[in-house]
């Protein structure tokens, strides 16, 4: 089933199963059902707990913070991840700080969901992957939807925790089918989940047994989907074999699945759609070079989008964002 429908079904089940769950966001109720139709139909499942709000992201997240401290489990939709900047004060100065500022007497488990990413010609302010600005905020968990993680399982385990969460959903993933590992496989790839205790699982995929791979590729969200396609092509066409590690929880990062793969391949490339520098990939490169120093065959590579605005023209947008051919070239080099 398409990821948008999986997410919709997952949110519907949470509303039914857990009376504390409240969905909030701009235009999320029917008939519009949200800009990407993730919440379509849900306002008839629980009309009193699916709230269409005024156009004020700071106010929505502020209200969610109050609900969360009163025992509710608000799940907020921010229509485009580009608008997350308007929630930043609530996240940085309030939601993530309340538990400590009130000496552990409250928790503030707000979940913010938001469609991110480009490749649709939506221009500079509707195409970004701005999650890098939220990585490393003390107390915040950042999660990325992927075609390989069941959103229902992800949301359910997030509801079992008390951390505030930012969940980014690349908008091109909505129309992709959810393909979780079945019988040790995803399509032609060998696949399995690995995780440390209490963390969301990472999915590891390879087209030959992992010990025969010569590069570890770490990517999340839509980049992971494209990286998987590139790795399959490289395997089929050139017998260049890589192992793909797809974390769900991108910050704080569970590095153990990456380390385990890196010990086998001794070469690593991190791929992200966000802008280059001061990024998820550069954090991984730093931590892994400390951990694997002396065992690496070559320097760790980071592939990210150009440090630029994202043009509206589809052609010019392609020059800025990480593309499939960029990935192919850099993964091939990293496997050498």
């Amino acid at each position: 089933m398409m990821l948008v429908k999986e997410l919709n079904a997952a949110l519907g089940r949470l509303l039914t199963d857990d009376p504390r769950v409240v969905l909030m966001g701009e235009d999320i109720a029917d008939p519009y059902g949200g800009a990407f139709k993730v919440t379509r139909g849900l306002s008839s499942v629980a009309p009193e707990r699916v709230l269409t709000t005024p156009v004020s992201e700071g106010a929505i997240v502020g209200m969610a913070a109050g609900l969360a401290m009163s025992g509710y489990r608000p799940i907020v939709e921010i229509m485009f991840a580009d608008f997350l900047s308007l929630t930043f004060d609530q996240v940085m100065n309030h939601i993530t700080k309340y538990p400590a500022m009130y000496d552990g007497k409250v928790t503030c488990p707000v979940i913010i969901r938001s469609p991110s990413g480009g490749h649709r010609g939506y221009g500079p302010t509707h195409s970004q992957s701005p999650e890098k600005h939220f990585l490393g905020l003390p107390g915040l968990t950042v999660v990325a939807a992927s075609p390989y993680h069941d959103p229902h399982a992800t949301l359910r385990s997030l509801l079992l925790r008390d951390d505030p969460v930012l969940l980014v959903e690349h908008k091109l993933l909505y129309a992709e089918a959810l393909t979780t590992a079945v019988g040790g496989r995803i399509g032609a790839a060998l696949a399995r989940e690995e995780s440390s205790a209490g963390r969301l699982p990472s999915v590891l995929m390879s087209w030959v047994p992992p010990e025969d791979c010569s590069v570890t590729v770490v990517a999340y969200g839509y980049s992971a989907l494209i990286a998987a396609r590139v790795l399959e092509q490289l395997a089929m066409e050139e017998e260049v074999f890589g192992e793909l590690v797809v974390p769900a929880e991108i910050a704080p990062l569970d590095t153990s699945p990456i380390s385990a793969s890196l010990r086998r391949t001794r070469s690593l490339i991190a791929i992200e759609e966000g802008t280059e520098g001061w990024s998820w990939g550069s954090e991984i490169a730093q931590r892994m070079s400390v951990e694997a120093f002396g065992q690496l065959r070559r320097p760790i590579d980071v592939l990210a989008s150009a440090s630029s605005i994202i043009p509206s023209s589809r052609e010019r947008e392609r020059e800025v964002l990480v593309t499939q051919s960029d990935m192919r070239q850099r993964i091939r080099a990293a496997a050498g």
Binding site: A188, L190, W207, V208, P209, D212, A235, M236, E237, E239
Partner: peptide, 29 residues
């Protein structure tokens, strides 16, 4: 399609039927 391009070429060269080849992942050379 479970075999790599190089593996298909090699199988043709050696007269091997790919259906008889087993592999954990893709069939390689």
């Amino acid at each position: 399609s479970r075999a790599t391009a190089k593996a298909r070429a090699r199988a043709h060269e050696l007269g091997i039927d790919l259906a008889s080849v087993t592999a954990a992942g893709l069939i390689t050379v």
